[in-house]
Design a protein around this nucleic acid. Sequence first.
RNA 1: GCUGGUGUGGCGGAACAGGCAGACGCCCGGGACUUAAAAUCCCGUGAGGUAACACUCGUACCGGUUCGAUCCCGGUCACCAGCACCA
Length: 803
Amino acid sequence: MKYDYPEIEKKWQEKWRESNAFEAKQDFSLPKYYALIEFPYPSGVGLHIGHPRPYTAMDIVARKRRMQGYNVLFPMGWDAFGLPTENFAIKNHVHPAEVTKRNVARFKSQLNAIGLSFDWSREVNTTDPEYYKWTQWIFLQLFKKGLAYKTTMPVNWCTSCKCVLANEEVVNGVCERCGSEVVRREKSQWMLKITAYAQRLIDDLDTVNFIDRVNVQQKNWIGRSTGAEVDFATTEGDKLTIYTTRPDTLFGATYMVMSPEHPYIDKWKAQIKNWDEIIAYREASARKSDFERTELQKDKTGVRIDGVMAVNPVNDRQIPIYVSDYVLMSYGTGAIMAVPGHDTRDWEFAKKFGCEIVEVVAGGDVEKEAFTDCDTGVLVNSGFLNGLSVEEAKAKIIDWLTETGKGRAKVNFKLRDWVFSRQRYWGEPIPLVWCDHCGEWVPLPESELPLRLPDVESYEPTDNGESPLAKCTDWVNTTCPRCGGPARRETDTMPQWAGSSWYFLRYCDPHNDKELASKEALEYWMPVDWYNGGMEHTTLHLLYSRFWHKFLYDIGVVPCAEPYKRRTSHGMILGENGEKMSKSRGNVINPDDIIRDYGADTLRMYEMFVGDFEKAAPWSTQSIKGCRRFLERVCALESEVKDGVSYSPENESLIHKTIKKVSEDIETLKFNTAIAALMTLLNQFFEKGVNRAEFKTFITLLNPFAPHLTEELNERMGNPDMLVREPWPQYDESKTKDQTLDIAVQLNGKVKSIVTIPADADEQAMLDIARADDKVAAALSGMKIVKTIVVKGKIINIVVKPL
RNA sequence: GCUGGUGUGGCGGAACAGGCAGACGCCCGGGACUUAAAAUCCCGUGAGGUAACACUCGUACCGGUUCGAUCCCGGUCACCAGCACCA
C-alpha cells in the first residue's frame, strides 16, 4: 500500500467523529478512567510544537484504556481568559470574546488534525458565562466562609500589564508573563486564604502519586518550618514577640531586629530619640522594589532604635533593637532575635554594626563565621542548656518557655495568601457589591449568577490602578441585594487561575445548569486518575486547584479531598540548536508544517520517540524521518503478510515480549522504548515473516501511537470493526521467557566467551557448559582456579591466577 | 547560598534489586537497484590496535566496597530547574 497519509488521516478523523468513537459513556456501572491534560490558553499564534507531546502521551493512555475496556473520560477545553487576548483586542479594536472565538476555532482544528481522541461533547470554555457562573459561585462560597477577604497591602504591580500579580507570578523580580519590572504598591486587594490549607496541602501529598519533583517543589513553596515564638519584654513594658527555628540559641541573642513596617515603631514614637532617622530609613526601604531588595541583599542596612531596649527572657540582659529591611513583616512576627554566632545574616549585620557575638553552640569559630551546623554542636554559655545537643536543647528550651509562659512551640509557613484581584477587563467579574448603608461587601444572590462582563468601549488598563470596568458606570452603579440601597459593584476581575482551578470538575457534567456538576457524576469520575502537565504550573495552577478542591470537599461539593490521583510532567521540546524555541531565536517549528510534510501519525510517533518523556529534548528534522520511515515500512509489511501459522518460533516469543513491554512502558511514561520495541518487532517480521494474526496484534499495539494508519491497515485486512473498539492484546508471561539464554563467561571479571544454556540450567550445568567452551578452555589453560561465581541465568565468573 | 535533578558514541537516547555497556533511531561510510539521481534494500559503524583475529581503553573526574560497578559509598567538577534576607 502506498502511504497516502493526508487521505488516510482525513478519512479516519471523520469516521471517528461520525461514530462518536471517543464519547465517554453515561453508564456509571462501567469501570472508569479519567485522563487529563492541562487545557491550553488559546493564543493567537496557534498550537506550539510542544503541545502535542503531553497531548499525544495522554491520548495514548486514553486509547489504550478504552481498548482495555474502561469507560474513558478524555476531555478538552479552553482556558481563555487572559491578558494576551485582551491586549490583542485593544490593539486591533475587536472584542476579546471575538478574538477568543477565532483562536479556539484554530486550536481545535489543529488538535483534531493530530488525531487526538478528545470527547468534544464535553468541551468547556472558561469565558463562557455558563461556565464562569460556577467560578463565581465558588468564589461566593469562599467569601461566605471567610476565605475571601479584601485588604490593603503592598502588592506586586507589573508596570507594563498595569495589573497586580500573585507572588507566584513574579519571577526574579519581574513579571512572569511580560518580563517587565514589578514594583511594590499599596493597594486594596481581594485575597484568598490559601494559608488556611497550608498544612493539609503538604500532608495530603502523601495520599497521592505525584512525581517527586512536584512534591518537593510544592513543599518548598509552602515552606513549613517548626520552631518557637518567644516573648521579649522591652524597657517600655511591651511584649515584643519573635519567631525562631533555633530557640536553642536563645542565650546567644545579643540584639533584636524589627522590620521597618513593624507597628511598634509608631507606638514608640515618644520614646524613640532618633525618630527622624528611623522614619527616613523606613521610607527608603518602602521605595525599594522587590527586585532592588534582592539585589542589595548582600549588603545589610539598618538603624538602631535609640531609646528602647529589649530584655532577653532567659538571662534578663538588656539588648539593643535595630530596624532593618532584611527582616520581613510578612513572615513570622516581623521581628527577630538576632543570634550572630549562629545565623549567617545576623553575623553579617553584627559585624557591620559592631554588635556582640556570643558563642552558644561549640564546634566552630564564631569570630570567623556563623556556626550553623545543627548536627554536631554542643551547647555552651547557655545556663541550663549547657552540654546538650542542638536537638535536645530545642526540646528543653521549648518546655521551659511553655512552663514560664514566655513562649510556645510554633509552626510557620512561607506560603502567603493568594492575591486574587486583577485590574483588567478580560476576566470573571467578582460578584460582590459595596454597600455604604450596610457598610460592607454584599454577595450577589446565587440566582443572579452569572454576573456577566458588560460591554465596554475601551479595555485599556488605567495607570491609576483601576480596572477598565470602573469606567462602565451603568454597570458599576447598582442596588444592594440586601438593603436595596445604592451600591457599587467590585470592578476588579479574577485572575486567569480562577477558571482553571476547577475545570476538571465541569468536564464530569459540563451541561448542568443546576450545579457545577451532579453528585453522581463527580462521585463516578473523580478523582482524575492521571493528570499530566507542565512543571511551570507546580506552584501555580496545581497548588491553587488543590486548594479549591479541598475547600469544595469541606463544603460537601466534591467527594474526594484530592483532585488528582497521579501527576506527571513532560519535558519541553527545544529548538534544533538545543535552545528554547522562540520567534526571536528563529528556531520555531510549526506543527501544521510537520503534519503537512510528514503526517499526523509521524508527528505523534516522533514526539513520543524524541527522548525521555520527562526531559527536555531538541527537535530534529533529521530524526523525524526515522519515524516516517518506520510507518512506511509498516505499510510495506502489509504485502508480506501470509496466512497460516507462525513461520518462526521466535515470532511468538518476541510478540509476547513486545505486548508486555509496550503495555508496561505506556504506564511508566517510557513511550520512547515502547516504540523501540515495536521497531524491533517490525524488523523481525521482515526477517522471519509474519502471518495475519501476528500482523493484527502488531497494528493493534501500534494503534494508540499511530491511530490513522493502523485503522486503515486494519480495514484493508477486512476486519469489520474499528481498531478503536478492539481489545488490547494480552500476553502470556510464560511465553515471554526464552528457552535458551546467552550467558557471558568471565575470567577475573573480563568477558571471555558467550555460551548458550537452557533457560532452566542450574549452576553446575551452567559451569559445565562454560568449561566445555573452546575459548573458555583455552583461557583456563595454565591457570589455577581460585573461585567460581555462578549466578543462575545471569553470569559465570571464574577467578583464576597463573599456576 | 539552599533544595532537587542530570552528566553514557558524531547526535537523540537504551541498559541500572550490581552481571555481555551502547537497544531503537538519526547521521556517516560501503555495496545493490537505476542511463542517472531520489527513494528503497543489504552490509558496516565507541576509541585505539590488527591483513584479519587477538588485545587494550572506555558510562564527567578522583578514590573506595565487590569475583564483578554506568548502577552502591566518600569526595571533586560541570550543567539544568526551582527557591532565595522565610529568622
